[in-house]
């Protein structure tokens, strides 16, 4: 498995971006809640348009061991782009050390040390759960970066999801984890 690129940082700024309906705000909440369970400070915000499906949807998470004063991401450590449009919009924010995950299902392949293209949506469809690409991506991000512990994510999903959906959602997180294990940089 590829070792986490970022480790033991005291602050993480994360952007999860895609189209409305892809569940990115939910991913951000799960990630934030997991960090809370680890005793961190968290601010989670989002920006969205009027369409419930489609349109731009962006969720942000800041995780810090100290008080988070300004609530928005300024120097992202991690960016997830689920669509071509969001990649173009948010890659400008990247600086040295920013890791960009993108969905290979929809985006052109790109080369770069800080880029990580994975087939989130295709994997979700193969799982028979087209709507779980967001959790697959979250699993991959956590596996790659160690921003929170995978067990914390699993714990949050177990505690907050409806009983019938827990198993498949944990499966999606684990699938994301395995995509990283298989991924050749």
């Amino acid at each position: 498995m590829t070792p986490p690129v970022i480790r033991e940082k005291s602050r993480y700024e994360i952007i999860l971006a895609g189209a409305g309906g892809q569940g990115l705000i939910l991913s951000a909440i799960i990630l934030g809640e997991a960090a809370i369970r680890e005793g961190k400070k968290v601010v989670q915000t989002q920006s969205y348009g009027i369409a419930t499906r489609g349109g731009l949807s962006e969720a942000e998470v800041i995780i810090d061991s100290e008080e988070i004063v300004f609530q928005q991401v300024r120097n992202p450590d991690i960016i997830l782009a689920m669509t071509e449009g969001t990649f173009e919009k948010f890659c400008d924010l990247a600086r040295t050390g920013t890791l960009i995950f993108y969905d290979e299902t929809f985006l052109e392949e790109r080369k770069g040390n800080n880029l990580c293209g994975l087939p989130f949506t295709r994997s979700a469809r193969n799982l028979g759960q087209g709507g779980s690409a967001n959790l697959i991506a979250l699993g991959a991000i956590v596996a790659r970066t160690g921003v929170v512990r995978m067990e914390s994510l699993v714990h949050v999903v177990t505690e907050t999801f409806p009983v019938g959906t827990i198993e498949v959602n944990i499966k999606a997180l684990r699938l994301g984890e395995s995509l990283i294990a298989e991924h050749k940089d």
Partner: peptide, 9 residues
């Protein structure tokens, strides 16, 4: 809108 939709611990 921001403070209303923002989540914090």
């Amino acid at each position: 809108e921001v403070v209303a939709h923002m989540r914090e611990g």
